[in-house]
């Protein structure tokens, strides 16, 4: 058994030690917010917070998560009715199109703003450079994160 907490709740899974954490979250814990796109750390669509740090869950051995605290997109905000400010800004700006990359961006953006609540435009770009999006061209994503950082509620 490998035990850790996910979104504040304890979890214990009986999976191979080297199973990618992403697969464990998706297959064994039913948390399908994090997605696989490249499986090799290039796209960030699998981003989750591990002890507060954004990591590619596709590159983490599940055994490495023993005793850590994981936050997935499902643990950010209070669901569709109670969005986190970043999520609300994504909706308002139109920063999610197909949406497959979106959970990874939300988690990475949350990590960025938790560390640096008032990032410059360049810091936002750099902070999200590990996340690929094929639909939006990124501009609305960058605007949404800037807006969330400024605390604009519109």
């Amino acid at each position: 058994m490998i035990s850790f907490t996910v979104n504040g709740r304890p979890a214990a899974v009986a999976v191979p030690d080297a199973k990618p954490l992403l697969d464990t979250l998706r297959d064994d814990l039913g948390l399908t917010g994090a997605k696989e796109c490249c499986g090799k750390g290039e796209c960030g669509s699998c981003t989750v917070l591990m002890d507060g740090e954004p990591v590619c869950a596709c590159l983490v051995f599940t055994a490495q998560a023993r005793g850590v605290e994981i936050i997935t997109v499902e643990g950010i905000g209070g669901g569709p009715e109670q969005l986190d400010p970043i999520q609300a800004a994504f909706v308002a700006e139109g920063a999610a199109q197909c949406g497959y990359c979106t959970p990874g961006f939300i988690v990475a953006a949350r990590a960025l703003l938790d560390k640096n609540p008032h990032p410059t435009a360049a810091e936002i770009r750099r902070g999200l450079a590990g996340n690929l999006c094929r639909c939006t061209g990124y501009q609305k994503i960058l605007q949404a994160v800037a807006k969330a950082a400024e605390g604009r509620a519109d």
């Binding site: 981003t47 990475a108 902070g127």
Partner: peptide
């Protein structure tokens, strides 16, 4: 190096 995610691990 890589991205923020790679830098974290």
């Amino acid at each position: 190096v890589g991205s923020v995610q790679i830098q974290a691990m």
